[in-house]
């Protein structure tokens, strides 16, 4: 598990030489993405994972929370329990499907909140500069003084378990890095001549921010945020692993990994399953955001 990487985003300012047939920015991004098979494959994988999670209630063969002492720790490939059962005899396949919902939710929702909040603060800091910038960015620096896992454990540890607290925790952890990326990107855009041209036409700060700054800052910030989805998933599973996530009967990959730990001598493969799900999901998100970053590096 790694920490949140420093933001990197397209800063190339050279002009694109030939005018492509595809019009507009997103067109050219898609044009590049089309031939990036790894990214496309991972995008497909993510779609499948999301669909499995969304339709878990219909897809899962059994009730994920119904335990059966008679059927504890069945192996993978069991006639009734395709992926075996856990230490309380609950069907692993069903639990994995349901657990995906929590993991995806924890991967995406905090990133969205953090992007909204951190992005807003970053744009304000970058646009106004001066004292406003100092107050916002120095505050963020303090959060950077914590490795992200530690910060997450600290906040969640104090707030206590539960899905809501976990979301708050992850959002707080993800705000500073997003804020920093948004600030850098905004400060860069802010110094460009077209912003001055907009100011010279008498536009209000709000209008300039929404019409000129936002569209130019959005893509680097979104690309960066997308790299945080996988980190958010891992952090969330780590918190659940420590008992700082959903409460027990509920299925969650991190929590399942934690409770199955006692059973590694009996059913090591079953115990490894939840972690494998986390790993695959996180790799898929990582590769997609990598591909997205490369595709978005299009000069525009």
């Amino acid at each position: 598990m790694t920490d949140i990487p420093a933001g990197s985003f397209p800063t190339d300012k050279t002009q694109a030489a030939p005018a492509t047939k595809v019009r507009g920015y997103w067109g050219s991004v898609w044009n590049r993405l089309r031939y990036d098979y790894v990214t496309l494959f991972c995008l497909g994988l993510i779609t499948v994972i999301v669909l499995l999670a969304v339709f878990a209630p219909w897809l899962s063969p059994m009730d994920p929370e119904r335990s059966s002492m008679a059927n504890r720790l069945r192996p993978i490939g069991h006639a009734k329990f395709t992926l075996g059962t856990d230490e309380q005899g609950r069907d692993m396949l069903s639990r994995l499907l349901w657990g995906g919902r929590v993991s995806l939710l924890m991967g995406i929702v905090p990133v969205i909140f953090a992007t909204l909040i951190g992005g807003t603060f970053g744009i304000i800091a970058g646009y106004y500069g001066g004292k406003v910038n100092m107050v916002i960015m120095r505050t963020m620096d303090v959060f950077f003084a914590f490795p992200s896992v530690l910060l997450a454990v600290a906040i969640a540890g104090s707030l206590g378990g539960g899905i809501g607290n976990q979301m708050i925790t992850l959002t707080v952890v993800l705000i500073p890095p997003i804020c920093r990326v948004a600030e850098t990107a905004t400060a860069q855009v802010r110094s460009l001549d077209f912003v001055d041209a907009a100011r010279a036409s008498g536009a209000s700060t709000y209008s300039i921010l929404t019409n000129h700054v936002l569209i130019n800052v959005l893509s680097p910030v979104l690309v960066y945020s997308s790299t945080l989805v996988s980190i958010s998933i891992i952090l969330a599973s780590g918190l659940s692993f420590l008992g700082l996530g959903v409460s027990p009967p509920t299925a969650d990959w991190g929590l399942m990994l934690s409770t199955l730990r006692q059973s590694i001598y009996v059913q090591p493969l079953v115990a490894a399953l939840p972690g494998l799900c986390i790993l695959v999901t996180s790799i898929a998100f990582n590769l997609v955001s990598d591909g997205l970053r490369q595709a978005m590096d299009v000069k525009a």
């Binding site: 300012k13 050279t14 002009q15 920015y25 460009l192 001549d193 077209f194 041209a197 000129h212 569209i215 130019n216 525009a300």
Partner: peptide, 9 residues
């Protein structure tokens, strides 16, 4: 220059 016009508009 690259910066005199908004590249996204």
């Amino acid at each position: 220059s690259y910066s005199s016009l908004n590249p996204r508009l």
